[in-house]
């Protein structure tokens, strides 16, 4: 249980940063073979944006997370490629949900 809002905020920030680092490590592993546009088309991850976000994180935090993620990869706990596919599918799901909600609002307003 989170003690207070501050703890919750810290936890969420940490999770977001973790995803940024994971995405950066993923595009790092792809860059030799694929161009930026290709990566965006395939996984809906913009390498440019991720790079900017990654380098805006404090260096020690970045390193700490990298080590942690590398360990998880080695132990087989996570697979960055699978993660990227999951993020993409989740993105499509939330797109579909917002499309549905737009559609519902249109129906409520009586628009066609």
């Amino acid at each position: 249980m989170m003690k207070n809002n501050q703890d919750l905020r810290k936890f969420l920030r940490q999770k977001t940063n973790e995803i940024i680092v994971m995405k950066y490590m993923f595009i790092e592993s792809l860059e030799d073979n694929f161009g930026e546009e290709y990566i965006y088309r395939l996984y809906k991850i913009s390498p440019d944006t991720i790079r900017k976000l990654y380098f805006s994180l404090p260096e020690n935090e970045r390193e700490e997370m990298r080590t942690k993620i590398n360990e998880q990869i080695k132990s087989g706990e996570i697979d960055l490629k699978n993660k990227a596919v999951e993020w993409h599918k989740e993105g499509l799901k939330s797109e579909a949900a917002s499309r549905q909600s737009r559609e519902n609002w249109r129906k409520i307003r009586g628009e066609h």
Binding site: R41, L42, Y43, V85, H88, K89, L92, K93, A96
Partner: peptide
């Protein structure tokens, strides 16, 4: 135009 193979199912559904 194209869609990634891993996400094709949701596009086909639409």
């Amino acid at each position: 135009c194209g869609v990634p193979f891993h996400a094709a199912e949701s596009y086909i559904a639409r």
